[in-house]
């Protein structure tokens, strides 16, 4: 066993996991506050990244970033008015179906107004690798500097979200809505405004995820498929838990890389994509609500 290489694969998996967590966070936020599983999170990542990169052609990064934030807030208002409000009190599956429709709309609309080319997004993330512990391990241990920066951005985002949820009145209102819609409404919390806020926050998370992924891959349609990588993360971590999205991302990231490197050669390779789901399903057998999901106790 080459321990240095094993460590390198684990580190690579952890870094990839952080990036999955960035997308998974968007799913969790909306589910926590509204009970809606937002299938359109990947499309929102693409839409935000496309908006940012095309606006950057006409203005500096900061101005484009602020304008994209405004676009994502407007999008949140639009979604609340046109999609969610008419479907209030409908079954969760109806809302889920609506977000599938929203996915296709956003994918198509984004590409229609911003184009379907590959757009280079340079936000100054370094690309060169760092080789550590060369004296201990033959060839050293490789860590991708770009992934380290991405992990740092994710950490700042999570810290910001934690502060927002714990320390602000709006954050507390969001948590109240998440716990019980009717009780929250009865104490005067406006449900519609809360939904706009949570979709806007989710849009901001999508923008950050789109920025990081877009810097890695270039901004293009495939960014919307990143959501498929985040699905096993939320299954494993639990739909309602921010820490679950982070830990779930790390477990999925490491699990899929180890499986590809060490199991892949025995079965022809190319297994990491579906192995993530196998891993998530195995966890579900033990904890159906996910690692950090809330246990639902139904009285009969």
């Amino acid at each position: 066993m080459n321990w240095g290489f094993l460590l390198e694969v684990i580190l690579g998996g952890l870094m990839a996991g952080v990036l999955y967590s960035l997308v998974a966070l968007g799913f969790v936020l909306i589910y926590k506050a509204s009970g809606v599983f937002n299938f359109a999170q990947g499309a929102m990542v693409l839409f935000a990244a496309l908006s940012l990169v095309r606006l950057m052609e006409h203005m500096p990064f900061l101005a484009a970033f602020v304008l994209t934030l405004a676009i994502m807030v407007l999008l949140a208002i639009g979604i609340e008015r046109l999609v969610l409000r008419p479907l209030v009190n409908q079954a969760p599956i109806i809302l889920f179906m609506a977000t599938i429709g929203l996915t296709y709309f956003l994918d198509g609309f984004g590409q229609t107004i911003w184009g379907s080319d590959v757009y280079q997004l340079n936000i100054g993330m370094p690309k060169e690798p760092i080789i550590m512990a060369e004296s201990l391990v033959n060839g050293g241990i490789l860590v991708n500097k770009e992934d380290l920066y991405a992990a740092l951005i994710a950490a700042i985002l999570v810290a910001g979200l934690a502060l927002f949820f714990q320390k602000t009145a709006t954050g507390r209102a969001l948590r109240a809505v998440a716990d019980d819609h009717q009780a929250a409404q009865s104490v005067g919390i406006p449900l519609n405004r809360i939904w706009v806020i949570v979709w806007a926050v989710s849009g901001i998370v999508a923008l950050v995820a789109g920025m990081v992924w877009g810097s890695k891959l270039g901004v293009q349609f495939s960014l919307s498929l990143i959501a498929l990588k985040a699905l096993p993360v939320v299954i494993l971590g639990g739909f309602e838990s921010v820490p679950g999205a982070i830990i779930g991302g790390l477990i999925i990231g490491v699990g899929e890389k180890l499986s590809e490197v060490y199991l892949g050669p025995y079965v022809g390779g190319g297994i990491e994509y579906w192995f993530a789901y196998v891993l998530a399903l195995l966890f579900l057998l033990v904890r159906p609500e996910g690692l950090f999901g809330e246990k639902h106790i139904d009285r009969v």
Binding site: F5, G13, L225
Partner: peptide
């Protein structure tokens, strides 16, 4: 060495770590 990449190919870290090794 044959190293498959699953569609659409946005995640290749494991593949390239094998190439490095």
């Amino acid at each position: 060495l044959t190293l498959p990449v699953t569609h659409p190919g946005v995640e290749q870290k494991a593949t390239w770590l094998q190439i490095r090794q």
